[in-house]
Simulated scan of single mutants.
Amino acid sequence: MPSPQAAPPPAGRRARTGRVLAGLCLPLCLLLACARPGVNQLAPDPADRTPTPSAAPPPASAPPPSAALAAQSSPLPSAPSSTPSPTPSPTPTLPPEDVLAGLTRREVPPDGAGALAVVPGSTPAPGPGPVRALSVAVEAGLPVDAEEFASFVMTTLNDPRGWGAGGAMSFARTDGEAAIHLVLATPGTTNRLCAPLDTAGEVSCRNQEMVVLNFRRWVEATPEYTGNPTGYRQYLVNHEVGHALGHGHEACPGPGRPAPVMQQQTLGLHGCTQNSWPHP
């Protein structure tokens, strides 16, 4: 049998129902229209050009950390700057007397590892008479041209005003066996090589067959030799080698007179004048 169907409402009821639905539709439609993009909304500010990120599907696999670091370290373009880049300061030029003494810089390292490098090669004795062989070494790490330093030492020792004056002796440099080993060292290494003498990192010494020149004194000299670093360096070589030759300390003979080369001129002239030579 066919299913019974509900009878249609009377015509007047249908009219009233239509009016009610129409009254509900008007505010609902207005609400939906306001929710649609671009409808009844303010236009975006043209100055705001920041794009709105859109959701993207996750990558199939994360990049390795190295790739992420590389991406982070990639330089970003930047606007040109009107501020000029600073110009690096040039390395100061050493005065000729420092270059002559073998210096390449004037910085004084307070200490070093103690590794001593003998300057290779040899320099023959320049004249007749007894020959004293010595080696020259420089502590590793010092700002020194070792060959220039060795040349300064040998020129000083074989100067006519030196210990070999009148043919008494001459000096030859070797990188092998020698009676005297002359060393240029940091203040800390000097103090260790001179033990049991305590140099306080300030003075030089002779210890057995070793002559140790303190690099601080080689660079800075002393106030009494201000303006004459070459003269002080010649004095230092002759004084310490003089100890190796058996000479002891001497005192100032009187105000205004040249200081003996074996006077401790590093500790003051005590009224004497500068003198770098055994036989001035």
Rank of each mutant, 00 (worst) to 15 (best):
P4D: 12
R13N: 12
A15K: 11
R16T: 13
T17E: 10
T17K: 07
T17H: 11
V20I: 14
A22M: 10
L24K: 01
C25V: 15
C29D: 04
C29N: 10
L30I: 09
L32V: 15
L32H: 05
L32C: 14
N40H: 14
L42A: 15
R49N: 02
T50P: 02
T50N: 08
P51K: 04
P51G: 10
A56S: 14
P57H: 10
P58N: 11
P58G: 12
P59C: 07
S66W: 04
S73L: 15
L76F: 03
P77W: 01
P77K: 00
S78M: 12
A79H: 02
P80W: 07
P84R: 02
T87G: 05
L94K: 11
P95Y: 08
D98A: 15
L103S: 09
V108R: 07
P109G: 07
A113I: 09
A113N: 12
A115M: 08
L116S: 01
G121C: 11
P124A: 11
G127T: 14
P128Y: 00
P128V: 05
P130F: 00
S135F: 00
A137F: 02
D145S: 12
E148W: 10
F149M: 09
F149G: 04
A150W: 09
M154F: 00
T156N: 05
L157A: 02
N158M: 03
P160I: 05
A165Q: 13
G166C: 01
G167M: 06
A168W: 05
M169W: 02
S170F: 04
S170H: 08
A172Q: 08
A172R: 10
D175C: 02
G176P: 02
E177R: 15
I180R: 03
L182Y: 06
G188H: 08
R192L: 10
C194L: 03
P196D: 11
L197F: 15
A200R: 15
E202K: 14
V203P: 02
V203K: 09
C205W: 06
C205F: 09
Q208T: 13
L213K: 08
N214K: 01
F215V: 04
R217G: 11
V219T: 00
A221H: 01
T222I: 14
T222A: 08
P223F: 01
P223D: 11
E224S: 14
Y225P: 07
Q234N: 06
Q234G: 00
Y235G: 05
N238W: 05
H243A: 08
A244Y: 04
G248W: 03
G248H: 09
H249W: 07
E250P: 05
A251I: 13
C252K: 10
G254C: 08
Q263L: 12
Q264E: 14
T266F: 13
T266Q: 12
C272K: 06
N275W: 09
N275M: 01
P278D: 06
